[in-house]
């Protein structure tokens, strides 16, 4: 099967990969690039575990094809920390115990990051609707919502 050679930017680095036409970004990340931080929970856009940010928009990596990504900017969980400095959302998830099994965490962190970029001062309800595309079965969402609200406050504060 013909493979397409795609050049894209992942977490700031130029990355070249070859993919088959039907391969999703999720498959490309996990299988071709060995970037396992993006998780596969359903393959149909219903759980949000594979949420990554492409060209500043949060999307399900299972619902994007690798061949579409020529020239795209892709952000995954592996690039969320600034070097060894955790992102405020990552810090707050640890502080608030906003994770248990952790399988949904990378997707939720990416979604929260993209959401706060659009809405830096959300209400509890807005956070809940913002994260409605990310299933978590462990936490009951309580501590996740608190962590996102707390991170938003910290991110708004002048440095």
């Amino acid at each position: 099967m013909a493979r397409h050679l795609i050049t894209t930017t992942i977490n700031g680095d130029e990355v070249e990969f070859a993919c088959q036409p039907g391969q999703t970004l999720l498959e490309v990340l996990r299988t071709e690039l060995g970037m396992n931080g993006t998780k596969n929970g359903c393959g149909s856009g219903d759980c949000g575990s594979c949420t990554v940010i492409v060209n500043d928009r949060p999307i399900n990596a299972c619902l994007v094809l690798g061949v579409e990504l020529e020239g795209a900017q892709v952000e995954t969980i592996e690039g969320m920390a600034d070097g060894t400095e955790l992102h405020p959302l990552q810090q707050k998830f640890l502080d608030h115990a906003a994770l248990q099994c952790g399988i949904c965490t990378p997707g939720i962190l990416n979604m929260a990051k993209a959401f706060l970029a659009k809405n830096p001062d959300p209400t509890e309800s807005e956070v809940r609707f913002g994260l409605a595309g990310n299933l978590c079965r462990c936490t009951g969402y309580d501590k996740i919502v608190r962590a996102v609200l707390d991170a938003a406050q910290e991110m708004r504060a002048p440095k």
Binding site: R30, M35, N36, G37, T38, K39, N40, T76, I77, E78, M80, A81, L86, Q90, F93, L94, D95, A97, L99, G102, I103, T105, P106, L109
Partner: peptide
Amino acid sequence: KRTRRPDGVDKVTGRARYGDD
């Protein structure tokens, strides 16, 4: 006491390895 979980950093950075990893 409320202490940070020992497996937390691996899970917020995508390092933690699950069944499919």
